[in-house]
Design a binder for these strands. Structure first.
Length: 502
RNA sequence: GCCGCCUUAGCUCAGUUGGUUAGAGCGCUAGAUUGUGGAUCUAGAGGUCCCCGGUUCGAGACCGGGAGGCGGUACCA
């Protein structure tokens, strides 16, 4: 027995946390991006494209005291040994761009950006290591006018992306109010920075873990379902009460209270003001949100809610913060309810450009997580609508290929997606191919049709429908359902007519 | 990163206390029904039983390590 020599065969597999996409999904994303971009442009934002890689120091992702980049970013060393990293968001490259071109730019600088970003972290359901973001930012405007505009833009963009009004809410908070809370409970000192960070991390989980979970995290700690224990912050009970009261302070839109949120928003802010007014940060944070709330146009009032339980970018945002949340529910393929949560975020970051220039450049922006939004809409609407396949022209006679291609060319010239079958199989296989491609029509011209100067236009969708009623093959073939003979010269006209019926 | 569960054909999964040529359904390929998708019938291809090592006369099954997947959790610009 001779054994075949072992040839090395790499396993064909997509890298962990990445994925391939085909057809309908790409088209759906492209359309969504086009709609979002159109809104951004209509607000006066210009598109900006920056490279996938940035120098790691420009992204600010070197680990402290170590000569290596943070694990969370994909990094490599250039041939001159400089570290470069794939961008993990679109804001850091913007800050670099603005700093690099500062003097040439008209300020405020308004730009939007669309593209993939990469994060080297554990993938989860609906969470990949490459995904698409779609951002708009205004650089060089202090609060609150730009912030109010961002909130409205955010609402308009989510709606343009395909989420009907009422199925989402833009939640707004302000980092300064949280600072006020820390002042109030005596955690504003220099030495309490770590504690503040941990408190905010716990608050950020309010959504997922609820009040009881957050109480546990703020106090002694929490044991999760897998038995793993998370160490708590260890706050005094009275301070835990303050934090929880703060988280639950939002006065939600209530049918009994009226149709819009602004009333509820004012109520929320008055409530907070009464508690935090004596703290300088709290006071100015409340004032900013009140100013934003006053500038919201009527048409967006139902979509923008003051809610102090959102945290976001812990060490990053300096003022107002926003989060877009979907509020509808859908079932996954196993029939379990899914909550989507955040499909975008943003806020004011007055410190980012300062890293480069040494001068404070106030900026505010939003970021839409297009991939998550698409996944959510797909679950809600059922599977992505299949892309309509091309009209398939069967290739039945080898020496007639030129004419088949001519038919395709005529159809394309008339704006019809069309292709000639190029596989070299028999009649039945060719129709099967057309079926699988989702072709609405097949064009048939064999010897007989050609002799008569005709082609057959076969409606595959109708044919499939009719076939359900037939269970005998002879009968099925005899009937040759859903096809009509037309003059070759009338091909385009007949195809367009047939397509128009769909 | 940490905890738990899982990994057998393209897909969904069987596989006895460790025993010879590892199975099913669906899908796929080819053929039949004179040049027509579906249905039916016939035939066929397709497996490193995730990988490496160990125990054993013998491992898909048992043990150790690794990888990948799923679910929590931590981190998250």
């Amino acid at each position: 027995m001779t054994k075949k020599a072992k040839t090395f065969r790499p396993k064909a597999r997509v890298p962990r946390g990445f994925r391939d996409r085909l057809g309908a999904e790409i088209i759906a994303e492209r359309e969504m991006l086009a709609r979002i971009s159109a809104v951004y442009e209509s607000y006066g934002f210009d598109p900006l494209e920056t490279p996938a890689f940035e120098y790691t120091d420009a992204l600010g992702k070197f680990l402290p005291d170590v000569d290596r980049p943070n694990q969370g970013v994909f990094s490599l060393q250039d041939d001159d040994e400089q570290w470069m990293s794939l961008r993990y968001d679109l804001t850091a490259p913007l800050a670099r761009y603005v700093a690099e071109n500062y003097d040439a730019l008209a300020k405020p600088f308004r730009r939007y950006a669309v593209g993939p970003v990469w994060r080297n972290e554990k993938p989860g359901p609906g969470r990949y290591r490459q995904f698409t973001q779609c951002d708009a930012d205004t650089v060089g405007t202090p609060a609150p006018h730009a912030d109010a505009e961002m909130c409205m833009l955010f609402a308009e963009v989510i709606e343009a992306a395909g989420v009907p009004a009422g199925d989402f809410v833009i939640r707004v908070s302000n980092r300064k109010i949280i600072d006020g809370l820390f002042e109030k409970i005596g955690l504003a000192g220099e030495g309490d920075a770590a504690t503040r960070l941990n408190v905010m991390r716990s608050m950020d989980k309010f959504d997922r873990l609820g009040e009881a979970g957050v109480r546990a995290l703020l106090g002694p700690g929490r044991k999760d379902e897998s038995g793993d224990f998370t160490k708590g912050v260890g706050l005094a009970d009275s301070n835990i009460e303050s934090v929880v009261a703060f988280l639950t302070s939002a006065v939600l839109k209530d049918k009994a209270k009226g149709p819009t949120l602004t009333g509820a928003n004012e109520e929320t802010l008055n409530k907070i003001a009464s508690v935090l007014n004596e703290t300088p940060s709290g006071r100015s944070g409340v004032d900013e949100l009140m100013a934003i709330n006053r500038q919201i146009l009527d048409k967006y009032k139902g979509a923008i809610a003051i809610d102090l339980s959102i945290i976001r970018g812990l060490e990053y945002y300096t003022g107002p913060v926003f989060e877009a949340d979907l509020t509808f529910e859908a079932l996954d393929e196993k029939g379990r309810p899914v909550r989507f949560g955040s499909v975008g975020g943003g806020g004011r970051y007055d410190g980012l450009v300062e890293r480069f220039k040494g001068i404070e450049v106030p900026a505010v922006g939003i970021s839409v997580g297009v991939s998550r939004l698409l996944a959510a809409l797909e679950l809600k609407r059922g599977a992505a609508t299949a892309v309509a396949g091309p009209v398939v022209i069967l290739a039945l006679e080898n020496d007639q290929m030129a004419d088949y291609q001519a038919m395709a060319a005529e159809l394309r010239a008339a704006g019809v997606r069309a292709e000639v079958y190029l596989g070299g199989s028999n009649f039945a296989k060719q129709l099967k191919y057309a079926d699988k491609r989702g072709a609405p029509l097949a064009i048939i011209q064999g010897e007989d049709e050609r002799a008569k100067g005709e082609v057959k236009v076969k409606d595959l969708v109708l044919g499939a429908e009719l076939s359900k009623k037939i269970d005998d093959n002879a009968q099925w073939r005899e009937a040759q359902p859903a096809q009509t003979s037309v003059k070759r010269a009338n091909l385009v006209e007949e195809v367009k007519r047939a397509l128009a019926r769909k």
